[in-house]
């Protein structure tokens, strides 16, 4: 059975591209438009990879990540945070909250796919 990716972003255009990319790379893809939807999807079935936008209204990516890690079933999920804020301190914050990678927008799609694949191979 293929690996599952949950894409969480409130921007439909980037979701479209990410969905296309991840499917092309051979993953099973699910989409959430905000933090609440993401938590609901995780609660149903934790994904193998979470592509998580940081800046979302209401509940931001940091909070989603924190809650995911607080749930024992969410510990195995690989979290890649995507953000427009490029400061180093934001990166540190994401990593401190339990993210596995922190990618600044805009990014190279080839790099992103390669990174997700490598992450899953590491286990």
């Amino acid at each position: 059975m293929g690996k599952r990716v949950l894409v969480v972003d409130d921007e439909p255009n980037i979701v479209l591209s990410l969905e296309f990319l991840m499917k092309k790379a051979g993953f099973e893809v699910e989409v959430a438009r905000n933090g609440q939807e993401a938590l609901a999807a995780i609660a149903r079935r934790p994904p193998d990879v979470l592509l998580l936008d940081v800046m979302m209204p209401e509940m931001d990516g940091f909070e989603v990540c924190e809650r995911l890690r607080a749930d024992p079933r969410g510990r195995a999920t690989k979290v890649v945070m995507l953000t427009a804020r490029g400061r180093d301190s934001e990166r540190q914050r994401g990593l401190a909250l339990g993210a596995d990678a922190y990618v600044t927008k805009p990014f190279s799609t080839r790099d992103l796919v390669a990174r997700v694949k490598a992450m899953l191979e590491e286990g």
């Binding site: 990319l21 995507l82 490029g86 805009p106």
Partner: peptide, 17 residues
Amino acid sequence: GYAWRGPLASLRAAAEI
């Protein structure tokens, strides 16, 4: 400083595809 980054990411991803 960052408001343009989101759309730009979409643009770039689409272009790359």
